[in-house]
Design a protein around this nucleic acid. Structure first.
Lengths: 230, 230
DNA sequence: ACCGCTTTGTGCACGAGTTCACAATCGGGT
DNA sequence: ACCCGATTGTGAACTCGTGCACAAAGCGGT
């Protein structure tokens, strides 16, 4: 059995610390929200135990996650809440400013425009965009509704880097292509389609129907177990 | 040539086939949607190559996923579209009927009520529920708006098994507790809080703010790479 | 009846993510 | 100054998910 020791194994030196894993990145926003809550309540320090409980994860996982951004935290004491809030914000890139455009002013686009999370934490909605000229000129939650023909102009003007697709499925790929064509490299897709994009573009999808079907699977499994134990 | 017959090695006989993994379950709805599209276009059979491309995954992964539900598919040919649709539906439990209650008739509740995915594929929205009595009596997308005080009655009457929480964060845990108290064992949570639930209850969360923050992280990483190559 | 082309199903190795357990380290009390 | 309880940071084992590569298996043409 030949063991390949090889050269250095270089641990992907992309950042100062070892690159933050995808799974960790997905949890950081949760920690951030919980910590903000603690800060508002006047809590100065938290232990990994407490924070983990509030975030719904195990303490070990939380510590490992946080260790990837640096060695903040004091042994025997815990983490300083405000300092950690800042560090996580910085790691996530929330100290920068991002312009977002929401395409599709249906029920969902409406809901997204009013969603508090979009306005806060460094995100600003540059415009709501729709194909229906009848809606153009409206103002929803303080945001102008513009026509989709102006998409390119809006993106250039506001330096939009994130596009949110809340259109019907049939229009989603077209809209996505246009966003990508304007240099948008991050897309949040609510339409129930698999978007085709070039390599360097990040797409995250949120699909309500899929979530429901996953729940249905577990429901079925539960009822099978409870009935079919014989 | 020694054929190992041995004793069955029983592969975790929880179901007829080896239990389907969580990652696979999350992809099955995507396959299902793509296949439905193919069926509507009159396509009779698909290869793993074609289906994988349309679903945005690798062919090997797709084949392994499908192999977990059984050995459907013909070598040298591919998969029969309609048959596969049926098998995936059955595996996901979509051949059964599920009643859903949506709590919170804000912008998001509105959007969810109108969302096509809820009405189709075995799901039926029993009622929209809100704390605001002024809204009670409305009909949205053919669904009655009822008061949250009637929650227990509605759940019992319609045998609701899935609850959707689209309330403000402050009300989410209360609503969740009441749902669980009525025997609901699956919850889809849109409120930006970590819900505490007993062991046997499944919670899936959808958090728009988190998705945006993840995109922000990748945006930042991209700009760091392009600038800081030195 | 056979051959060759195509495509599935899967064993295997690899990598990513999780959990455990513990040494290293800090603050506070005496 | 020292000790003790508390808590972090992390090495190491383990589980889970992914991708490769290929044998098994079907179909159609000759």
């Amino acid at each position: 059995m030949v063991r390949l020791v090889s050269v250095t194994s270089l641990p992907s030196r992309s950042s100062r610390r070892g690159a933050i894993s995808e799974a960790t990145v997905a949890r950081l926003p949760v920690y951030l929200r919980v910590l903000t809550g603690f800060a508002d309540s006047g809590v100065a320090t938290v232990s990994s135990e407490t924070l983990a409980q509030a975030a719904g994860v195990g303490p070990a996982k939380l510590r490992k996650d946080l260790s990837h951004l640096g060695s903040y935290g004091t042994r025997g004491v815990g983490y300083d809440v405000e300092f950690l809030v800042y560090q996580i914000s910085r790691a996530l890139g929330l100290t920068q400013h991002y312009s977002v455009v929401i395409v599709g002013v249906g029920n969902l686009g409406h809901a997204l425009a009013g969603y508090a999370g979009f306005g806060t934490r460094g995100f600003q909605v540059a415009a709501l965009v729709d194909a229906d000229r009848a809606r153009v000129g409206e103002t929803i939650a303080g945001i102008d509704v513009r026509h989709v023909d102006d998409l390119e102009a809006i993106i250039a003007e506001h330096e939009v880097s994130i596009g949110v697709i809340a259109t019907p499925a049939s229009a989603a790929q077209d809209v996505c292509d246009r966003l990508v064509g304007c240099g948008v490299t991050s897309v949040l897709n609510f339409a129930p389609v698999v978007l085709a994009v070039p390599e360097q573009v990040d797409v995250r999808k949120v699909d309500l129907s899929i979530e429901l079907q996953i729940l249905a699977f577990h429901e079925q499994r539960k009822s099978l177990v409870s009935e079919g134990t014989a």
